[in-house]
């Protein structure tokens, strides 16, 4: 079953328990920082009188995983998008490509790796909730299956007319995400990206990449054909109008530089 989180901005009290729990759970050094970094995978920020969490959205078709040349990032069937630091070579394409600007880098290390929330993949696999959801005293971060969370979100929106915007952030954004949010403050005012396409960005690349084998075949035959025609014309030209003293040249026997 694909699990996820539902963050309810109307319930968050801004205590920061989730951020501290994340540090502890994932053995991240240092204090909780103001913005997410390679060492702080989630933060709570006050915006427009509300609180909002920043963390990886765990996209259903993750852009980061699609761009990683060494497949260091992967979507697991349980929901988390996990990272294998042993494979990563540090090209940072995932950072550049992520529509939510989530992956961060260890800029201060000689042997750096990427850091981002992994939806407590180990715990989730054991059937436990994420550390941040467990730590939340206000039920603002809810752990559950994605389907159940959407139901719950819809219920809260329905039962509190005027209490929420009628939108579940993450239901369709960038093709849908496992981490979703509801709020009564417009999401872009909370610092979340707006106008994200409903289809995963990875599809745009795949449209091009999937055509490469066909392209190589056609272009290769075309190029050889051009060569064959022009070389043939040469042979004909040399054989007929004015034969060279040393005799006609075979097409292959050219002298390239």
């Amino acid at each position: 079953m694909s699990m996820g989180l539902l963050f309810d901005a109307t319930r968050c009290v801004g205590c920061g328990a989730c951020a501290s729990a994340c540090k502890e759970q994932n053995h991240l050094p240092g204090e909780v920082e103001e913005r997410t970094t390679a060492y702080t995978w989630t933060t709570v920020e006050e915006k427009e009188g509300a609180y909002v969490r920043h963390l990886c959205m765990h996209c259903l078709v993750p852009t980061c995983a699609s761009v990683c040349p060494v497949a260091a990032l992967k979507k697991t069937p349980e929901g988390p998008v996990v990272y294998d630091s042993e494979k990563c070579m540090g090209c940072r394409y995932c950072m550049m490509a992520c529509p939510f600007d989530v992956p961060k880098y260890q800029w201060d290390r000689a042997v750096p790796i990427v850091g981002k929330c992994i939806l407590c993949a180990g715990r989730v696999k054991e059937g436990k909730p994420t550390a941040c959801a467990e730590a939340c005293p206000a039920d603002a971060t809810l752990f559950g299956s994605r389907a159940d969370l959407i139901k719950e979100a819809k219920k809260r929106i329905r039962e509190n007319p005027g209490g929420y915007l009628d939108h579940i952030y993450g239901q369709t954004e960038a093709g849908g995400t496992s981490v979703m949010m509801i709020s009564n403050v417009p999401f872009e005012k909370l610092g979340l990206k707006k106008d994200l396409p409903g289809e995963p960005p990875a599809l745009r690349t795949w449209q091009v990449l999937s055509n490469i084998p066909d392209f190589v075949a056609v272009w290769g035959v075309f190029l050889y054909g051009v060569h064959w025609i022009t070389a043939r014309r040469d042979v004909v030209a040399q054989a007929h109008p004015r034969p060279r003293p040393e005799g006609p040249e075979a097409p292959k026997d050219r002298r390239p530089s």
Binding site: S66, V67, C68, V70, A71, A72, Y93, A202, L209
Partner: peptide
């Protein structure tokens, strides 16, 4: 480690 979905 192959990832044919990646332009990189």
């Amino acid at each position: 480690y192959w990832n044919p979905h990646s332009v990189m």
